[in-house]
Structures are given as structure tokens and as C-alpha cells.
Design a binder for these strands. Sequence first.
DNA 1: GAATGTTAGTAAGCTGTACTAACAAACATG
DNA 2: CATGTTTGTTAGTACAGCTTACTAACATTC
Lengths: 384, 384
Amino acid sequence: MASTDRRHAGVARALRPSTKVLPGQARAHNRSLVLQLLYREGPMSRADIARSTELTRVTISDLVAELIDERFVIEHGPRDESRPGKRATMIDIDRAGHQMIAVDLSGDDAFRAAVVNIGGEVVERCEVPIDGAQGPDAVAQALAVIDDARARASAPLLGIGVGSPGVIDDLGIVRVAVSLGWTDVNLRTAIAERTGLPVTVMNDVNVAVLAEHSFGQIESDDVILVRIGHGVGAGVIVGGVTFRGSRFWDGEIGHVTVGTGEGPLCRCGRSACLEAWVGVPHLTAELEHLSSETERSAFLRDAGAYLGIALAPIVRTLDLTDVVLSGPPELLGGDFLVGAHDTLLERAMVGDPDELSLRMTTLGHDNVLFGAVVLVLSGQLGVS
Amino acid sequence: MASTDRRHAGVARALRPSTKVLPGQARAHNRSLVLQLLYREGPMSRADIARSTELTRVTISDLVAELIDERFVIEHGPRDESRPGKRATMIDIDRAGHQMIAVDLSGDDAFRAAVVNIGGEVVERCEVPIDGAQGPDAVAQALAVIDDARARASAPLLGIGVGSPGVIDDLGIVRVAVSLGWTDVNLRTAIAERTGLPVTVMNDVNVAVLAEHSFGQIESDDVILVRIGHGVGAGVIVGGVTFRGSRFWDGEIGHVTVGTGEGPLCRCGRSACLEAWVGVPHLTAELEHLSSETERSAFLRDAGAYLGIALAPIVRTLDLTDVVLSGPPELLGGDFLVGAHDTLLERAMVGDPDELSLRMTTLGHDNVLFGAVVLVLSGQLGVS
DNA sequence: GAATGTTAGTAAGCTGTACTAACAAACATG
DNA sequence: CATGTTTGTTAGTACAGCTTACTAACATTC
């Protein structure tokens, strides 16, 4: 009988944990669907939206009226093109009608923020030097750069998105961020109380991969982004959704042992950690000792190979199609990338090289900032 | 302008691809919520369900009436316990009221099927020898074992769940299954047309991890199951949902290169593949050459270590808490497991050993069969 | 230029979902 | 026995999206 009970408990867990759904939530969903479509397709008529969503024209008219009322959508006058039938009225997102604040706390020297409109265009940029601030002082600096941005906004603010280093839970509490001296800092609440706006906080690497998926040139819904700086971190999107580990330690790949031989000493005290192989401090230090270009090239290729070794089991298990590297392009963009790519193809036994793309981010240093934009867009306008 | 367009396209992708939601679908969701709850908690009153789901008693009464009408739920008479107020009428899932057919095509020698009731109890078992059947013959054998099971069912059938080897897409088409000589075999449609029942087909390892998550003793919603037989495959559940690669090649981890030194030759022609290190043929062949117990023990521990090496980057990146091994317990259950566990803890830098569990499946050979049960339960009664 | 057919958008009424309010039945307790 | 609680139901309400039917506006054809 005990075994029977256990079985019941088990099946319940297989069915996804969920809560009630009210009709109103269905409407919110359909509302987002309309916004989504307008984003992707640009200006279109109510009838177009109805055909695309398979909702009726009546329902779409109703939803659009609501969105126009809230200033998220505007009428653009009659369609240019000439067709039989009544001329259609074009509708579009009011891309300049609302703005949001994107915050990047991942810099070594400064906290950066930007005022961005719904269309993803940066309207204003601000920066506040960190000056080695730690703990509460660092929080104050973060609030300062947000205050600055808020003062420069020229339209109603939708919300605030923050990409921060450290281990961050789903409530926006920074469990630990060594570089800023934070332990259990409730960043989300701190910013929300200061500004009265909806705030979303996420780990910088997770946010960077969001940006890559949204603003980068990626077709796939399964992407991994590896960020190489002092440390090494990864962000994973599977099925179009950011993957978050149950204890929020996902992507903390820097101290995985790589290789079955000897390896360089890591600052964590062990040796052959991925971070010890490919972290920026190690790369620059080694390159200084190498004079000839051939030596430097071979070294970078070898270092890249170690990244490939670590990634192979992940790429194969998740059947990933896109791997993106973020970090100093002068170090990673050349031989390092080639070494990583070659090794990855070989060790993951990818037959056709076209099946696996490994490349540098196309967004450069702004990827965290744009990821923060995605946080706000999906949180405030999206489907959740 | 082109860059602006690209941005819009990007943001649209970030918002999850979705379709319209009708009020009726919300009701279906709430209906499943009730079933879920009854599964987990066992018999309870309508008022209990209302409190748990935060839907009103009225709504619950309505949903329960519908479920009773469809024979999924039965009234169990008044509650035993004596409390103030009107005595509650207990209701429960009618666990014997419907049955389903679970099919396991992963065996080396035989196709197996079972008639299982909603409660997860096996009512009948059938088996059909494969006898080396290939291609269409193998399909015929699979249909035969299903016919057999169908004839033995003693209650209305809810549907059919199938766990099959090979690469299987989301439509239930077996893209390729080497051992059965299948290429682009539409197994789902073949079975559906023969039986007229809803059919779900999934890769055997993915199905096995479903079983582990539902019927096994696992708390976590993030699990990886590694199945070691002739080959090596993995199945991943993240956030309680089976992970499926965009090209359905997820979990095909057998031919990832492991280690940075020499390695045994693999049947694929390369060397140091995971399968070459830990596949059953290699393990048994090597063990034959070893006479002393210490040698055998050391060998198995080393072999397990190679599995640990391959798993470390995955476990760290996904922050997994549970790793489950499936395969011959006499080979994997002892020193092999210890070697894998030790290596994994060390190389993934898991501080507290309690944070990562690595163990054998508790369901033994039946894990694919029970996974097929989960397919039907979640497909026909579950959410989404 | 008038007739015809097509398309866009709106108005009215219907169906279905979940809600609140109110009630009777059944029970324990003081 | 009176009182208070709990259960499950009935009646009526709010809201979402539907169908049906309409008007306005347009191109095409005669």
C-alpha cells in the first residue's frame, strides 16, 4: 500500500505543477500575442492580425482598442497599397511611446545604464564609476546610475531590467556576488522601492544570452553563451526559454576540471579548472611570455581547445546548434575561436560543420544591456 | 533601417512563440488541476479541492460533475472523520475505471507491453520476441504486441504510450533506429490507425527519465538519466519538462570523446568515445581478462570515472541535483557507481556531497514501461 | 457611371467560464 | 436544544470570445 501511495505522488509530480487559470489570464495572453505579432511583422491591419492569430476580427478590434487606450499601440492611417474592398487602417506598436531602463552591473570599472524605447533604440546612456565600492556602497552606486537614467527618460517608463554578476534567485535577490561583496542583497526590492517601477534582476550571463537570442543573428531556440572574463560563466536558453537551475547555480562552469592530465593552478586552489585554462588573466599572462606570432597563435588555439573539451558533452547532450562566445575579441576572436570550434566538432562528433555554429557575440559589450531590455519587454509586455 | 528590422524580429523571438488561448482551454487546464490534485493527495472532498486550488466550491462542483460524468472520478461516500459541519463527500480518481497500454520497444530480444490502470498498476503483461526482425517486420511485431495487450484490456483504453530506441521527432516519427533497421518510420500513425487510440511515441531514454521523475524517489525537477547498454544515451528533464533538442538528437552522448589521452577503439571508428569506455560490451570484455577481485574493482572504478568526466560539465552547467544510472546493476551498481560519483563530485567542484545524488534507477528494467505510462497520463489527463 | 463583388471594421446577441451571494442540510458543541 | 460550522447547491453576475449581420469603402466590370 505504501508503494501505491508513492506512485500516486510520483505521477502528480510528472504533471506540471501549476495553478488555476482564469479567463482574464487568457485575455492577457492574447493581448501579448497581438503585441508580439506587431513586433515581428511591423505595421499591419486589425484584419491581418485576426488572420494571423486565428482570433476573430471582433476580438482583435476589442484587444486593439484596449492597447490603443493604454498608448501601447497607435493607428497609422490607411494602408498605402490599393486592393479591392475597404481600405485597411494600419496599426503599430508605439515604439517611442514608452521607455524602459536597462542596467548593466557587470562592468569591471563602472555601472552602466541606458534609457531605451520599446523599439530597442537607446535614447540615453549613463555611467557611474564603481571605484571599488563594496556591499551597501555598491548598492548605492547602482541606485545612483538608475536615478540618473530615470531623470533623463522622456516617456512613461515601463520598468527596469538589471543584469548583475553573481548568483541571483528568481526573486531578484543576489545570493552572492563576490566581486561586489554582496551576500543576500535584495536588489529587486531595493530598486523597486526607490523607483516604484516593476523591476527584473537576472544574472549577467543569463541576460547576455537572452540578448543574443533576441537581438543577435540566431535562428535557433537552443543556445549557449559562454562569457570569458576574469571568470568563466555560461548562460543557456533551451526551447526559447532561459534555463535556471533549481538552486540558481546554473552556468557556473568556471571551476569544472578540464582534461585528464596536468593543468594550471586555479585561484580556487585546485588545478585544471576551465577558468585556469581560458580565463583572461591566464591568457594575457601566458601571451606576455611568448614573442613569436606562431607561438602565440598555437597557444591560443590550444587554450580554445580546452573550452571545446568542456563544451562537447553539453552540446551533444542538449543537441545545441549555436554556441556564442562573449569576451575580449582580441583574445578570443581569432585562433582561440578556431581551436575551440575544431575541438568541439571533433569531440562532439558533429558530422556536418554547418550543424554547429560557434562564433563571437555580435552585440559586443552591449549584450548585457540589451538583455536587460529583453527582461523588461518580456516581463511587462510578453507572455511570461 | 535593416538593423531596426532585425531588432524587431529578434524581440519577437524572445517572447515565447505561442497561439491564442480560448476560455475553454483555461477550463481544460483547471480540469487537469483537479485530477492532478486527486492523484497527489488521494481521496478528498470538493471543498478540500476548492481550498487547494483556490477555485470556488461552485466551480469545483461543476468540474467534478463533468469528471464523474466521464467516469474519471467517483464518489466514495461520506468522510470517516467526524468534524463540525455537514459531512463531506469524498471523491477520488477512478483508478480502475480506465486503462492504458504501455509499450517498451527497447529490449534486445523482445518487445514488451503492459495493460496498466490509471493508478499505475500493471494489470496484464505481454511479450513478443523480436527474432532479429528488421524494418517493416519489426513494425509488424510491435503492432502484434499491442494487439495482444489490447485484447486483454478490461476497461476503456485511454491511449497508448511507446518508448522506442532511436531518434524520434515530436510527431512520433522514428527518424532512425539502427538496431531495428528503421528510417523515417511513422510509428505513431501506424499504431493510431490500427487501434484508433491516441498514441504518444518517445525515445526510450527520454521515457525512462520521465518514469524516474514520476515514479522514482526524486525530489528534484532537474534530472539526467544515463542509460548504459550496447550504447550510451542520456535523457534530461529540466524544470520538470522533458528536454527535446531542436533536431531530436538530444542525449546522444555515446560518441563524445572523453579524456585527453589515449582511449579504447570505438565501433564508430574513432577512439575514446564514452561508449568505448563504459559500454556494456567493453566492460564485460575487459572484466573477462581480470581474475582478481581487486583488479576488477579498480577497473570498474576507473570506467565509472570516465562517465564522471563526461558528466561534470553538464551537471555544473545545468546545476543538476540528481543523476540516475540505468543498465545492468551487476556491472554498474557497485564500484562503477562509486568511481563515477567520486569523479563527478571532484571535477564538478560540488562542495557538499549531499547536493548531488548519483544512483541506480529504482525501477529496474521496467523504467521504460512506466515512462510510457507517464506519456499517456500527461498526454490524456495532464496539463498541456 | 452604375452594378457587382470584396474587404475592413463595428454592433448586437449568444455561449461558456468562473465569480459572488444566499441557502438548506448535516454535523459538533456548549 | 440552540448555536455555530461546514458542505454542496441554486441563482444571478461579469467577462471573454464567438457568430451573425450590418455599414462603409474600395476595385472591377459592364
